[in-house]
Design a protein around this nucleic acid. Sequence first.
DNA 1: TCTGCTATACTGGTATACCACATCTTTGGC
DNA 2: GCCAAAGATGTGGTATACCAGTATAGCAGA
Lengths: 247, 247
Amino acid sequence: MSTFIKESRPYQECERFDPLQMSDFQLKDSQTVASQIYKTLRERIITMQLTPGVTMSEQETANALGVSRTPVREAFIRLSREKMVIISPQRRTAVAKISTERAQQEHFLRESLEQAVLEQFVLNLRPGAIDVLEQVIELQKQALLSKDFAAFLTFDDEFHRTFYVETDKYLCYQVLRRNCFDYQRLRYLSSCSDEAIQRMNLEQHEQMVRLIKERNLADVQALLRRHVRRIFDEIKVLKERYPQFIQ
Amino acid sequence: MSTFIKESRPYQECERFDPLQMSDFQLKDSQTVASQIYKTLRERIITMQLTPGVTMSEQETANALGVSRTPVREAFIRLSREKMVIISPQRRTAVAKISTERAQQEHFLRESLEQAVLEQFVLNLRPGAIDVLEQVIELQKQALLSKDFAAFLTFDDEFHRTFYVETDKYLCYQVLRRNCFDYQRLRYLSSCSDEAIQRMNLEQHEQMVRLIKERNLADVQALLRRHVRRIFDEIKVLKERYPQFIQ
DNA sequence: TCTGCTATACTGGTATACCACATCTTTGGC
DNA sequence: GCCAAAGATGTGGTATACCAGTATAGCAGA
């Protein structure tokens, strides 16, 4: 029943989170401190700036950010609920390693949901919806040209998000975002390391738009399946390249 | 962008959570206090013992339970992340009303996922899986005979959970549980008030098992669709019966 | 009776202090 | 040199105190 990961290495050898990484953190008045810390840490974990296995202390993070432990703790609790960090009471808190088992189930969830959403999208196509997709693709092209990989992934998300927005399924999209965390990290590892993958991603998006224009539901669903499953062909490669991150 | 619900009534008229309801709460050493409070409140909200709209104070809850505000606050934060309560900073915290919009999207999520899981279940039917389903149905029958409605709903969940367990999709099941909260509350309101609905539920389960035995995927998926959509035929009735709970 | 001001009580957000417990380090015996 | 016991250190969990902002009630003036 215990939820924490037993580390074979002694704690003293565990890599620790370097608080200096947070030096550019600036507090805004418009949100609660806890919420800002949560978002910052989440972003840094997904983009692998905080790598899996790294130990994070509530106290150290609070010191580095110049706030008390309370809001930091609230942020940690949120992260642990979403399995981004593993809290071992009285022991330590660490960034969770990427679980391929988890990523596969997250993928299953995403594929099942997005197939259904895509069906609704194609069957009730709103005038102008295609334009939105094509605009996003244009932004992706520009990001690719300027080699801004982070922006490219943001627009990739935006492309898929459009299906949910247009079919009034935005809450479903949020559930997906909050629960497909290991899948996202794998995707980040994969895309950022290889420009060819991003180009293929872009081509598939363009092909999807063409098929949607033709109202070709069967083919667009098949393409989406291949599109989101791509990451699994690369898991083996990623596992060899980043064995310390993936379990 | 604001997430809190504007109440038209002055706060003084808002119904408040009666701490005496928690008088049977007993602390166990095996879990953290925060976790126990969370589970207790969650259970009471889902089973409508804590009704939508009721105001809950961190301090009052802490007093009633004989603990400090800190673990209570952590429980509240968890609940608010799952949209079970709405925290209005510096104003109040209240049990969220049931949103039909939310329930519909939760239903869409469940239907999309469970259809896919059911397909895997039927295509890779494990010997003994049918037995598990039939055992659960037997338990439901007994609960129905003894008019134990809460137990009936538990076994109903257990029936559907079996599909996820057998197909190694348990993490997907957990995502569903944690995100189909308004759907669950509607189902509770519906089932507990009408024994006929429970009988129909049971019959549909039996029919599903028969179709699964025949490996009749198309019909069992169609039946599942009708099965989980049943609740939506009743929303109008529920909305008239409990206008104060549903928005 | 109505309106607007103000004092007060109360809310949730944050800071701080303390605790039990896991781990690490030192120590003292052989 | 080894190893176990004892103390030191650090962790997350909990309790308490304080803060800024909000709602309420009561009062003052019309």
